[in-house]
C-alpha cells in the first residue's frame, strides 16, 4: 500500500516535470521574451542588458532549474499583455472556475450515476431508450451550442435567468464566491448545466456499461442464487464493484470540466481562468499560457493521486495484502 502510493508519487513528479518542461519550452522558445517586454525603440544594448538580467544567457538547464524554482515558490512572473503579476491574475480568476466546475461535476454525478444504474437494470424500458438517445445527442451537441440554446431559451425567450457574468458575489478573504447569493446562483445555473451536460452523458454511459458488465459476473449470479435482497445486490454488490472504473473516469472528467470551462466561460462571459487563457492565447501572452498549463497539469496529477488513494479505500485487493 505505502510502496504503491510512493511509486505513484514519484511518477506524478515526473509527469509534473514533463509538464513544466513543456511550459518552459513554451516560455523560452516561442517568441522572444525580451522583444515582448520592450518596445520597438529600445536600444540593442538595453535589450542585451535585460537579457543578461533575466538570465536568458545562462545555459538552458540552469534556466530550467530556475524556472522550476520559481514555480515551486509560486513566483510566476509578469503577463506580457497586462504587465501584472501572473500569480495575482490567476488567483483572482480561480474561484469562479472552481465553483463553476464543481457545480457542473455535481450535476453530472447526481444525474449521471442513478441514470446509468437505471439504464443498466431496466434495459428494455422506454425511459432507458429515451435516456440512451438523449446521451447520444448529448455527446454530439458541442458545448457551445448547448450554451447558446440555453441562453436563447431561458435568457432571451423566457427571460428567467441571466446570460452572462457571475451575478453578485461575496468576498471571503481572497475568495470571491457566487454561491452565497441568490443572484449568484441564478447566474451559475445556465453555465453549470452547459458545462455539466457533456460530462453527464459520459458518466451515464459509463455507469451503465460497467453495471451491465458487473451484473453478468459470477459473484452477482451467486448473490442472486443465495436470494439476497435485490436492492442489496444492485446497490451494494454491483454498484460497489463498478466504483473503481467510475471513479477513474469521473476524476479524468474533472480535467475535462476545467478544459471545457474555456468554452463555457467564453459563451457566458464567465470571468474565470478559461476566459483568461483564451485572451492570453489571442494575444500570445506566453507567461499566462505557461502557468495555466502548469496549473492544469498540477490539478490532473493531484486528482490522479487522490484517485489512487480512493482505489485503496474501495478495493481491498490493493489495501490488504498477504494471506489470511
Amino acid at each position: 500500500m505505502i510502496p504503491f502510493v510512493a511509486r505513484r508519487l514519484v511518477q506524478s513528479l515526473f509527469v509534473m516535470l514533463a509538464v513544466a518542461a513543456l511550459a518552459f519550452a513554451l516560455f523560452r522558445f516561442v517568441g522572444d521574451p525580451v522583444s515582448q517586454m520592450t518596445g520597438v525603440e529600445t536600444a540593442p544594448e538595453d535589450m542585451e542588458r535585460l537579457r543578461v538580467e533575466l538570465g536568458l544567457t545562462d545555459p538552458v538547464p540552469v534556466q530550467f532549474a530556475r524556472f522550476v524554482g520559481d514555480l515551486v515558490t509560486l513566483d510566476f512572473g509578469y503577463s506580457y499583455r497586462t504587465r501584472q503579476p501572473v500569480g495575482a491574475m490567476i488567483a483572482e480568476r480561480i474561484p469562479a472556475t472552481l465553483e463553476l466546475g464543481f457545480v457542473a461535476l455535481l450535476i453530472s454525478l447526481v444525474v449521471g450515476v442513478p441514470g446509468g444504474v437505471y439504464a443498466a437494470l431496466k434495459p428494455r424500458s422506454p425511459a432507458t431508450q429515451a435516456l440512451l438517445i438523449g446521451t447520444l445527442i448529448g455527446v454530439s451537441v458541442p458545448t457551445f451550442v448547448i450554451g447558446i440554446l440555453l441562453i436563447f431559451l431561458f435568457g432571451v425567450q423566457l427571460g428567467w435567468l441571466p446570460t452572462f457574468g457571475r451575478g453578485s458575489t461575496v468576498e471571503i478573504g481572497p475568495w470571491r464566491t457566487s454561491l452565497l447569493t441568490v443572484d449568484g446562483w441564478r447566474a451559475l445555473i445556465l453555465p453549470a448545466i452547459t458545462l455539466g451536460l457533456y460530462q453527464l452523458t459520459l458518466t451515464l454511459r459509463l455507469v451503465r456499461a460497467e453495471m451491465m458488465e458487473v451484473m453478468r459476473t459470477d459473484h452477482i449470479r451467486f448473490a442472486l442464487a443465495r436470494g439476497l435482497p435485490l436492492t442489496s445486490i444492485h446497490y451494494r454488490h454491483a454498484l460497489g464493484n463498478t466504483l473503481v472504473p467510475v471513479v477513474t473516469i469521473v476524476a479524468l472528467q474533472f480535467g475535462g470540466v476545467i478544459a471545457f470551462s474555456i468554452v463555457t466561460e467564453s459563451v457566458f462571459q464567465w470571468p474565470g481562468l478559461g476566459l483568461l487563457f483564451l485572451e492570453s492565447i489571442r494575444f500570445v501572452d506566453i507567461p499566462v499560457m505557461a502557468v495555466y498549463l502548469v496549473l492544469i497539469g498540477f490539478v490532473f496529477v493531484a486528482i490522479n493521486l487522490l484517485v489512487d488513494l480512493l482505489y485503496a479505500a474501495i478495493d481491498p485487493r490493493i489495501r490488504v495484502t498477504g494471506a489470511a
Binding site: A18, L22, V263, I281, I296, F300
Partner: peptide, 26 residues
Amino acid sequence: MRIADVQLALPAILTALLIDGIARGV
C-alpha cells in the same frame, strides 16, 4: 504510455488551443 498520460493530463481542447497558440507565436 507516460507520454500518453501527460497528453491525457491536457484535455483535447487545451492541447489544440496550445498548439494553435504556439503556432501563432512561432
